[in-house]
């Protein structure tokens, strides 16, 4: 089910010749009169964890949505595996999101009517798996994140931290190459928040997935290999990786 975990690459240096997995540059996006992104760029290398930091309203979530192909930028380029995501068709983007990307949000991401198990199985079922196979795999992932006991419960019956761990399982179940996490700990206390970011980064490193995590919490960002700062819609790559 999962691709064999590729070796973690936290120590890759900037001069490394390996091409980025996902590269967005010169991204602009406006919502009505609001400029969310002015000129944002981000390159993501295979297997690395990048924190996107910045004050609220700085455009970091929009940057994440653009990179993930959820929001189409007004200008700029996004390249993933040799494809241009800015011009890719909607079905193509959807297929990419189903198979190559995983998502984690701050709140409200689990379908409230479905059980935790069904929620985790959802991305596989969207990818056409049979219900039985999908749920078997989902059960494994729930166990892996120490929330196996929640399989039959609905999200409403879980605590925030448990719900986020279920969401982590859902984000990773397809064996994505990139996980996009938007303030995954924003609604949690520090202990639960740390547990979630730690499980996310560890599981991602084991499966070789790269992670883009938008956060305003330094302690959460400290789990990343490097950080990118977003301010007024512009990115400021402080460079230092490792």
């Amino acid at each position: 089910m999962n691709r064999p975990a590729s070796p973690a690459l936290p120590d890759r240096l900037p001069g490394d010749p390996a091409p980025p997995l996902l590269a967005g540059s010169g991204l602009r996006k406006s919502f009505g009169l609001t400029r969310a992104l002015e000129d944002a760029s981000l390159s993501l290398y295979p297997g690395e964890v990048v924190a996107v930091m910045g004050p609220s309203g700085s455009g970091k979530s929009t940057l994440l949505h653009c990179l993930a192909g959820v929001v189409r930028p007004d200008a700029g380029t996004i390249e993933y595996g040799g494809q241009d995501l800015v011009t890719a068709s909607d079905p193509r983007l959807s297929a990419l999101r189903r198979s190559e990307f995983g998502f984690l949000f701050q709140f409200g991401q689990l379908v409230p009517e479905l059980s935790c198990l069904e929620n985790v199985a959802l991305p596989l079922r969207l990818g056409g798996w049979s219900r039985r196979r999908a749920e078997r795999s989902a059960a494994e992932w729930l166990d892996r994140l120490d929330v196996g006991g929640l399989a039959r419960k609905t999200p409403g019956e879980c605590s925030g931290g448990q719900g986020q761990r279920v969401a982590v399982a859902r984000a990773l179940i397809t064996g994505p190459r990139v996980v996009f996490a938007d303030e995954p700990t924003g609604a949690l206390d520090s202990l639960n928040g740390e547990r979630v970011i730690r499980m996310l980064t560890e599981a991602a490193r084991e499966t070789g997935a790269a992670v883009v995590v938008v956060t305003h919490e330094a302690r959460v960002a400290a789990y990343a290999d490097r950080e990118v700062v977003c301010r007024d819609g512009r990115t400021l790559d402080t460079g230092a990786r490792g």
Binding site: A68, V70, S94, V111, L122, L126
Partner: peptide
């Protein structure tokens, strides 16, 4: 009421038809 859930499902690549 499910606006957010639907947006999330769309992010996950759920087809419109589904």
């Amino acid at each position: 009421g499910r606006r957010r859930v639907h947006a999330v499902l769309t992010a996950f690549g759920a087809r419109r038809s589904t």
